[in-house]
């Protein structure tokens, strides 16, 4: 069990002039539509509790209006909570005073935006060193850091271009470099790849995962795209109408959706591609053991051809090629049936 980096407890957000006065009614069970009809206030977040582990990627998913962008903005307090606690490393962000909050944002968090949020009047190097220059880091030092990250995200040669001379994918690389140049331990990504076309998006996801292997940041990633969530998330939290409806590992979400909303979300996903063999394998080792072998970390799809060739049981191996279990034709069929 690794450390909890960000702990969100009983977080409520109501938009409107009498937000505080209405929290008690929301606590008594008034939902989003009723609050809007009765008091003309918008319920942003309704009693959110999430623990986000250090160095993990926590995906927060939901349709538009579900409160996911509101939630991520509570972590660096771009939005003030109506009630609740946001603990980062055992420090309550909601209690920071003005200067402490600025320091917190300058040093602890980096943020990547859906529409990039780059400065159109500055070139790429200056954009990337935004955080550093706000902190007042020495110009030559911050320049060097910026160059390093521009190189890291693959934008050499574009240092002195302006943002609107770059394609969407490249602009978002600048956004990512800008967030990383600050060396924060928390990376907040608000639908960071949603505005990109599918191929570029997939590229960026791969790049993020690649970077994360070395960086080991705590990443909070907002998306409305389940495939993206499954690809990136160590854990996925699903929001609906400001409420947290499920929080779990990708396979939990797929195999045991908490309610109809989540079921609808996951029903079109190709499970054989997403689920790993280890999630359905049995510990019992097949005695004959001359049956074909598959790696436990590969996806279920990869063993389908073997079953179609007539095998009924496969041996499952770990990283060192030791046989650790087995998987049968029936179990795989069961997974497929649940579509």
């Amino acid at each position: 069990m690794s450390n909890v980096k960000i702990k969100i407890e009983n977080l409520y957000k109501i938009f409107g002039h009498n937000a505080k006065g209405l929290t008690s009614e929301v606590k008594e069970g008034l939902d989003k539509d009723e609050l809007l009809a009765k008091h003309n206030h918008v319920l942003g977040l309704d009693n959110i509790n999430i623990d986000i582990e250090e160095q993990s990627i926590q995906v927060i998913m939901g349709l538009s209006g579900s409160g996911k962008s509101t939630l991520i903005r509570h972590i660096n307090r771009l939005i003030e909570p109506t009630e609740g606690v946001v603990m980062v490393d055992n420090q309550d962000v909601t209690k920071l005073n003005k200067n402490e909050l600025l320091e917190f944002r300058r040093n602890r968090t980096g943020m990547v935006f859906q529409r990039f949020g780059l400065f159109p009047h500055q070139n790429i190097v200056d954009n990337v060193q935004l955080g550093l220059s706000i902190k007042g880091v020495d110009k030559s030092e911050s320049n060097e850091t910026a160059m390093f990250w521009i190189d890291k995200v693959g934008l050499n040669g574009f240092e002195y271009k302006f943002p609107n001379q770059l394609s969407g994918g490249m602009q978002q690389r600048v956004g990512l470099a800008r967030a990383l140049a600050n060396d924060p331990d928390i990376l907040l990504m608000d639908e960071a790849f949603s505005a990109l076309d599918p191929l570029i998006r997939s590229d960026m996801q791969d790049q993020l995962l690649e970077l994360q292997k070395n960086l080991k940041k705590t990443i909070v990633f907002i998306t409305h795209d389940l495939d993206e969530a499954l690809k990136l998330g160590d854990r996925i939290a699903i929001l609906n109408g400001g409420k947290l409806v499920q929080d779990g590992k990708p396979e939990d979400i797929l195999l045991s959706p908490a309610d109809e909303y989540v079921t609808n979300f996951v029903k079109d996903v190709n499970r054989t591609k997403v689920l790993k063999i280890k999630t359905i394998m049995k510990d019992s080792i097949q005695s004959g053991s001359d049956c074909p072998k598959v790696a436990m970390d590969s996806n279920i799809e990869s063993c389908l051809p073997l079953f179609l060739d007539g095998e009924s049981v496969l041996s499952v191996t770990d990283d060192e090629k030791n046989i650790v279990g087995s998987v049968s034709r029936e179990e795989v069929a069961n997974i497929l049936k649940r579509y």
């Binding site: 944002r105 300058r106 943020m111 949020g117 935004l130 706000i134 902190k135 600050n182």
Partner: peptide
């Protein structure tokens, strides 16, 4: 001024 650009500055701790 584009709200997201301003928000970006804010998110990086601009006063």
């Amino acid at each position: 001024v584009d709200k997201e650009v301003l928000e970006a500055a804010e998110a990086f701790g601009a006063n």
